[in-house]
Structures are given as structure tokens and as C-alpha cells.
């Protein structure tokens, strides 16, 4: 038991670093992912994760494979794409989803071409799939810093952020300033995605953000409980994924998202009207 579940983290410092990283990520992925779900913005979240690519690529081209620079430029390009897509939605008759998908395709291709023009396929793979097991203290500090800022922001603006998501007109009628929250939330989402990108790459960054949140939403009806549960499930997925990657000799990033996915499928199967659990319950009640 100890050998399988704990020893890897005792023996290998890279496993410890990775574990600390994914646990810190789980802390912000839970609440931010759930709020994305609540606002019906999962698609936007997915798009923004790709919007990080051109910035990260630009950072890579300018400075080389430095995670700190790539994270910063990635954040900037994510924010720029979010603003551009927002402005395009305001100014054109196209709906928000169309604009976001168009910008996602643009960023993905532009970013890939940039990396390939100045680097190798391996570099591109690193941008897309990340290197969880290569997390060093610097990257860990960045993830921790982002997580701290996002968590503090969430704590301070928790209520207006939520109400803006489900009854914006009412918030506008009682609070003086409501134009700040949509942008603030977008910035938080991009920051969270960048933190995930530092560990898992841009393609996988959405996985730990949305899957535990979706799984938690299957079980918990109250928002606070759902947030706590999604943090817990995210931590569990990160831990399980790291173990899986070590024991089955699989790439670590995809195994973490796979573990999150397995948790999500279990949650799906165990909730709802057609779930296994509710069938057992129904059988218990009927004579």
C-alpha cells in the first residue's frame, strides 16, 4: 500500500513538486471551474485556453523555453483575445460563440506556426501538453502566486461575481458598478488557465479546470458544497493521475486529465435519474 500510494512521492522530488503543483491548481480550478459552469461559459473557457498559445509562443521565441516569460505573455495574449472577442461581439452581428471560436482558431494556428518557425516539434508538444514532472521551484512559485491572487480576488468579490452570473440585471439595479465583474472574471479564468498551462500545457489546461467541477456539480446541489467537492475531486484526480503515470509509465499530463475524466464519468454514472445508485434506491422502496 505504502509502496504504491506514498513511496513515489517520498522517493522522487519531481513527484513531490508535481503533487504540490496539482494540489495548488485544484484549489483555484474548483471554484473557477464551477463558476464557468454556472455562467454557461465552458466553451469560452476552452477557447481562452487556446488563446494562451500565441502569447506563450511569442515568449518562447523571444526568450526561449522560460516558463515564467511564457506564462506572462500567455496571460497577456489570453486577455487580449478575450477583449477582442468581446469587442467583436459588441460591434458585429455575430454571436459570442462564433467570435470566440474564430479567435481560438486564429490563436491556435498563429501560436503553432510561431513555435514551429523558431523551435522544434518537441517544443510544440511542450506548449500543448506541458511537463508536469519538470516543475521546478520557480514554476511552483508562479503557480502558487497565481492561485493566491485568484483566491483572494474570489474571496473579496465572491457575491457580486456570482450574482452577475445569474441575474445581471438585478445586480445592475442595486450595485453602482457592474461593468467590472465580467472582465474581472475573464481575467481570473485566464490566470487560472495560465497556471494550468504551466503544468499541463495549453491543450490539457481546461481538463482539470472543468472536469472536477462538472463531476462535483453532479453530486452537490449547493454551491459551497460543490466548490469544496470540486477542489477535493481535483486534488484526487491530480494525485491519482500522477500515480497512474508513474506505475503505468504513461505521460503525466494526459494521465492527470484522464484521472479527472474517470472521476467525471463515475460522477455521471452515480447521479441523475438513470444512475446506478438511484436504481438501487428505487428497488429498495418498491415492494
Amino acid at each position: 500500500m505504502y509502496q504504491t500510494l506514498i513511496a513515489p512521492f517520498d522517493n522522487f522530488s519531481f513527484m513531490r513538486m508535481a503533487l504540490v503543483g496539482v494540489l495548488a491548481l485544484a484549489l483555484i480550478n474548483g471554484p473557477i471551474g464551477l463558476m464557468l459552469l454556472m455562467r454557461r461559459m465552458t466553451l469560452v473557457g476552452n477557447v481562452l485556453s487556446h488563446a494562451v498559445v500565441p502569447g506563450a509562443a511569442l515568449g518562447f521565441v523571444m526568450v526561449g523555453p522560460s516558463m515564467a516569460v511564457m506564462g506572462l505573455t500567455g496571460f497577456l495574449s489570453g486577455v487580449v483575445v478575450a477583449i477582442l472577442a468581446g469587442v467583436a461581439t459588441q460591434l458585429t452581428p455575430l454571436r459570442q460563440d462564433v467570435n470566440f471560436v474564430a479567435f481560438y482558431l486564429l490563436s491556435l494556428t498563429a501560436g503553432s506556426l510561431l513555435v514551429l518557425a523558431f523551435g522544434s516539434n518537441v517544443d510544440l508538444m511542450r506548449v500543448f501538453f506541458g511537463t508536469v514532472l519538470a516543475i521546478d521551484l520557480g514554476v511552483l512559485a508562479m503557480i502558487a502566486a497565481i492561485a493566491t491572487v485568484v483566491l483572494v480576488g474570489l474571496a473579496v468579490f465572491y457575491r457580486p461575481l456570482l450574482v452577475d452570473g445569474f441575474d445581471p440585471r438585478f445586480l445592475g439595479s442595486v450595485a453602482g458598478r457592474t461593468d467590472v465583474y465580467a472582465g474581472m472574471f475573464m481575467a481570473m479564468v485566464v490566470a487560472t488557465l495560465v497556471a494550468n498551462f504551466l503544468a499541463l500545457g495549453t491543450l490539457l489546461a481546461v481538463g482539470p479546470l472543468l472536469l472536477p467541477a462538472a463531476a462535483a456539480r453532479c453530486w452537490a446541489t449547493r454551491l459551497g458544497a460543490a466548490m469544496a467537492l470540486s477542489v477535493l475531486l481535483g486534488a484526487l484526480g491530480g494525485y491519482g493521475g500522477l500515480l497512474m503515470s508513474l506505475h503505468a509509465n504513461m505521460p503525466s499530463g494526459p494521465s492527470i486529465v484522464l484521472a479527472d475524466g474517470i472521476i467525471f464519468v463515475i460522477a455521471l454514472a452515480a447521479s441523475g435519474r438513470w444512475s446506478v445508485m438511484s436504481r438501487f434506491k428505487a428497488r429498495g422502496i418498491s415492494p
Binding site: 454556472m38 454557461r40 456570482l162 452570473g165 441575474d167 445581471p168 438585478f170 460543490a226
Partner: peptide
């Protein structure tokens, strides 16, 4: 109303 009643 534009209230999202799915909100928990």
C-alpha cells in the same frame, strides 16, 4: 426576467 433559474 433574465434570471438563470438553474443557478443553485
Amino acid at each position: 426576467s433574465e434570471i438563470d433559474t438553474a443557478f443553485p
